[in-house]
Structure formats: structure tokens, C-alpha cells
Nucleic acid binder design. Structure first.
Length: 510
RNA sequence: GGCCCGUUCGUCUAGGGGUUAGGACGUUAGAUUUUCAUUCUAGAAACAGGGGUUCGAUUCCCCUACGGGCUACCA
């Protein structure tokens, strides 16, 4: 009987969480849910110097917006806590010492400055099986001396002692067999001088203690995998080692490197799920949410960046993703981010989502633009009329504003050059008839409109566009008679009169 | 530089020893919508190169090229 599936995502609160991380979260989550397993969120805050206030809150907010809930986390608790590594500090030293006792690790007394100057002098300097013989550590100085240095509180780190000549292999769930040679890997620091573990130690100890069964992370971790593999072996936990899966990276649209936080501004699209602001560095970046994405579209887009189910289906809900997801269908190569396609996914979801899911966010957008005082029912009608022409939630304002307020500006160029007294007379007659006949249905308004067109010996094509400009201000929007019916005859009449003045003004001026 | 990973239309990708190399985004043309968008139809558009293996390679192997990642007391 296989143990219960337990996966984890372990961000460090050093900044916002960008979409690469969110995709790793998503794949973790899908895999966990599919296998009735647990998804754990662990905060890797072992680098105190890079801690950014608000980053942890931000991570939780992103999760919430995405509709992903951790089963265990600093917020949700769980039986394997604490889930913040800073709160687990005391655990790591003990494990590191065990390694030293067993001869798999050693104390090193070189300061960062010492090593820095080494790097200046020796090109490609590495703390490894070779150079460690010449450096200050418990392998080069007498045992007792090293012991007393450590006991006396001398600053030191604990480093893994990489074997000189050993092949280290493992099978990655996405990439297959991968082999490294131990001589190519340096003696990574396991425990830092401040007593905090590095990622290398912490990830192994915590994955073990938290009974993680499958470990997903970005491809950038591949080169340090041999360190982790060896650690699992040295601790004697090989049988409990999780299966590894190294995800392909999300690349910049131009292919030059992995997508990073600054690229949002550079290429003009969001890279963070929701707005991120780092007050330390005064760094600010717009989120997908605020740009107008809905969670369904965002999640769908992310999932398809590097994964597909082998069919032509491209639109997946979270439930469908959980059902269809499989690791062996994750592409190996990195994926360049394509914002146009991202918007397309969102547009598809806007089209097929229930009104109930759209109402509140669109309402917020309208309010943001100063449009208040309307019934939900009215907004619902508007949403229904314009949603097929919106890929982003934010577009609802442009596409729907004229349902609430008369246009301020008119595309007079489309109307004025061909304007005439006959047309003006027609519209005045039409406005009057609208009210007296009490027309409320789109079809009835259209019928009356056409009837009057004939009476005035005009062509319908001559007055359709002007009518649209009168109501909308521009050449876009749903069927013009539907708009008239929606805003009502009174308002339609008012807009006709208002526009008539504007058209007249421009006409006489030109 | 060293090591590791990768490479199918511009982009995301399907496929896999014999296919007209499929889909989607974007793009082009047309139809519909007396606007715009939607929708529909059609089109252009790809197996990085060279060697093998094979009757036959885009597919398997090797090399090269290109791209990416890592190379911290950061994750």
C-alpha cells in the first residue's frame, strides 16, 4: 500500500510570487487532488536578509484568488508543523551535526570575505573535494582544535563533503534518467553561520519530516539535485525519498531567459497573479487580476503552458484539470509566454461563465470608473449583451459605459461630413414617435425607425450609423436597437437631441 | 569557461519509423453582423544542421549548432 500522496510548494517570502511559481503550485495542487493527497504550503524563510514584509500574506492572497486551498500551511495548520522554516530553526542543526559525526559533512571556518577574495584570485574557484584541502575547516585543522572552535562559538558553517568520484543518478518523472558526477558539484553549505539551514539542508529535512512523496520544482533546481540526493542517502532515508519532477521554465516572449519580475513592465503584461508592491525596494507590478483576468482564465492559461491532455481540448475548468492532469504529459522544453493567447483563454471563460460569477467583478469595475446607481439586474443585462466582445474584465467599462451615461464625445467624423437637414428632421420625428408610441421592445423600435426612414425618403444605411453614434458615441457595441431598448425611450430621445446639437455645431463649423 | 536540460508553423503544442505532419493563438482573405466584436469558411505558416541505423527517418543513435538553467553562508 502506497503512502498517501503529499506534495508541497515551498516559496521564500522574498518577493511576490510570479506565474512560474503559481504554475508549480497549480501542478502540485492538481496532482494532490487527483490522488486524494495533501497539498502543503511551507514557507522557506531561511534567508533573513532577504525577507520582505507582506510577501507571505501575498502568497496566501494569490492562492485564494486562484481557488487553491492548502491542506497544511502556516495558516491552516497541520500535524507536521511548524510550516515556517524560521520556526523550525532548532531542528536543522541537529541533523547537520549528525552528518558531521558520520563524516559526510564538516565544519568550515572560512568567512564569506575569505572566499570572496579566493574567487577574485582563482577563476572558477569552487569549494570542493580539491580546494577544501587548502581551506580552514575541520578536515584540515586538528580535530580537537576544530571542536573547541565550534564550542567556543567561532563563526562557522557546515558543508557537505562531496565524494570525489561518484556517479549520482535519479529518475525524474518528467525528464527520465539524469546523471551527475560528484566531482562537478561543490561542497554546498548546509548550515549557515547564523544557524539557519540553507535551502539544500532544509528541503531535505523538511520533505522527510513532512513525509513528502512527490517533489515538484522548477528546472533551475536540477543542478543542485545531486546534493539533495546525497543528503537523502547520507541520512539513511533513501526509501522515503520523494519522486522528483523538474518543471520546464516559463520563458520571456523573446526567448531570452526565464520570465522574471521585471519583464512585466518590459513587455507590457502582468507577471504576478495580483498586484504586488514591495515597499522596501519600491517595486510595483500589476497583477493579472487587476488587469482583468478571472481566475478560471488565468488557471486555464497557466495549465496549458507546458501541459496538454493529448486531445484538442484547450478549455479546462479546475475540476477538469484535476481529472485529466498527468505528469507524463508535461512538456520538457520551456514555454515562451504569449500574452495574446493568455487573453484568449480569459475571453473564452468570460463568454461561458455564469452571470453570477461576472456580476460582482464587473460591478467593481464600473464603480471604479465612477458608475454607480444602477440595479444589479440592469448590469446583468448589460453584461449579457457585451460579454462576447470582452477578453478582459476591464473592457466591460469601455464596452458598457454608454448603457449608463450618455456619450461625452462623439465620433463626429463618421457623421458630420454627410450630415443634412433631412437627417436632422428624421431624427427629430423619430425621437417624438418613440415616446408617443411608447416603444420598449427592440424589434418595435426598429420597425418604427424603418417606417420613418421610408417616410422621409432616406436610406436606412444613411441613418443607422448616426443613430449608433448618438447612443454610443462611437462605432462599436451591440445591435443599436437593442441598446435603445435597454437604455429606454426617454434616454434614447434625450441622447438624440443632445447629439443633434453637437452634430449641428460641427456641421456649421466645417 | 564547466556541468546539466532542452529544440515540430511567429507562439502554445499533437504526433511518431511509411501521415496531405493535426489543433489552438496570432495573421491574411471572404461570408454574416447596415458599427465593432463574436460566429463561420478558406489560406499562408514548422520537424535546427550533418552523419549514421534502416527498404524507409521528422520520429531511434551520435556529433554540431542554437537556446535555456546552474555555477552564493539566495531560494
Amino acid at each position: 500500500m502506497k503512502d498517501q500522496v503529499r506534495v508541497r510548494f515551498a516559496p521564500s517570502p522574498t518577493g511576490g510570487l510570479h506565474i512560474g511559481g503559481v504554475r508549480t503550485i497549480l501542478f502540485n495542487y492538481l496532482f494532490a487532488k487527483q490522488n486524494n493527497g495533501k497539498f502543503i504550503l511551507r514557507i522557506e524563510d531561511t534567508d533573513q536578509s532577504r525577507f520582505v514584509e507582506g510577501a507571505e500574506d501575498y502568497i496566501f492572497s494569490c492562492l485564494e484568488w486562484c481557488g487553491i486551498k492548502a491542506d497544511e500551511s502556516p495558516r491552516d495548520g497541520g500535524e507536521y508543523g511548524p510550516y515556517r522554516q524560521s520556526e523550525r530553526k532548532s531542528i536543522y542543526r541537529e541533523y547537520a551535526e549528525k552528518l558531521v559525526e558520520a563524516g559526510y559533512a564538516y565544519y568550515a571556518f572560512d568567512t564569506s570575505e575569505d572566499l570572496e577574495s579566493k574567487r577574485q584570485v582563482t577563476e572558477n574557484f569552487r569549494y570542493d573535494y580539491n580546494s577544501r584541502q587548502t581551506l580552514r575547516n575541520s578536515l584540515t585543522i586538528p580535530h580537537e582544535a576544530a571542536e573547541s572552535l565550534v564550542k567556543g562559538g567561532a563563526p562557522h558553517v557546515i558543508r557537505i563533503k562531496m565524494p570525489k568520484d561518484e556517479n549520482i543518478s535519479f529518475t525524474d518523472m518528467i525528464r527520465g534518467d539524469i546523471t551527475f558526477h560528484s566531482s562537478e558539484v561543490d561542497d554546498k553549505v548546509l548550515l549557515k553561520a547564523d544557524g539557519m539551514p540553507t535551502y539544500h539542508l532544509a528541503v531535505v529535512v523538511d520533505d522527510y519530516l513532512m513525509k513528502i512523496t512527490h517533489a515538484f520544482r522548477g528546472e533551475e533546481w536540477l543542478p543542485s539535485a545531486p546534493v539533495h540526493l546525497l543528503l537523502w542517502k547520507y541520512f539513511g532515508w533513501e526509501k522515503e525519498m520523494p519522486q522528483w519532477a523538474h518543471m520546464p521554465l516559463i520563458l520571456r516572449p523573446d526567448g531570452h531567459g526565464k520570465l522574471s519580475k521585471r519583464d512585466g513592465e518590459k513587455f507590457g503584461f502582468p507577471v504576478y497573479p495580483i498586484n504586488w508592491y514591495d515597499k522596501n525596494s519600491n517595486f510595483k507590478s500589476d497583477g493579472f487580476k487587476e488587469t482583468g483576468f478571472i481566475p478560471e482564465g488565468f488557471i486555464n492559461m497557466l495549465a496549458m503552458l507546458g501541459w496538454n491532455d493529448g486531445t484538442d481540448q484547450e478549455l479546462f475548468s479546475m475540476e477538469q484539470l484535476i481529472e485529466h492532469f498527468s505528469l507524463d504529459r508535461i512538456h520538457k522544453g520551456g514555454a515562451k509566454f504569449d500574452y495574446e493567447k493568455a487573453k484568449w483563454y480569459n475571453g473564452e471563460w468570460i463568454k461561458q461563465l455564469d452571470l453570477s460569477a461576472l456580476l460582482q467583478p464587473v460591478k467593481a469595475i464600473m464603480n471604479y470608473h465612477g458608475i454607480h446607481n444602477f440595479e444589479d439586474e440592469y448590469l446583468a443585462k448589460v453584461i449579457d449583451m457585451v460579454k462576447e466582445r470582452c477578453q478582459l474584465l476591464s473592457e466591460f467599462h469601455h464596452q458598457g459605459a454608454f448603457f449608463f451615461n450618455a456619450p461625452e464625445k462623439y465620433d463626429t467624423n463618421s457623421v458630420v461630413p454627410k450630415w443634412s437637414e433631412e437627417k436632422k428632421a428624421f431624427f427629430m420625428a423619430f425621437a417624438d414617435k418613440l415616446q408617443s408610441a411608447n416603444l420598449t421592445e427592440s424589434a418595435a423600435i426598429e420597425a418604427k425607425f424603418k417606417e420613418l426612414v421610408t417616410e422621409h425618403k432616406l436610406k436606412i444605411g444613411d441613418v443607422m450609423l448616426p443613430f449608433r453614434i448618438m447612443l454610443v458615441g462611437d462605432k462599436f457595441g451591440p445591435a443599436v436597437f437593442d441598446i435603445a431598448a435597454t437604455i429606454g425611450t426617454e434616454e434614447t430621445k434625450n441622447r438624440i437631441y443632445k447629439a443633434l446639437e453637437v452634430f449641428h455645431l460641427h456641421h456649421t463649423n466645417s
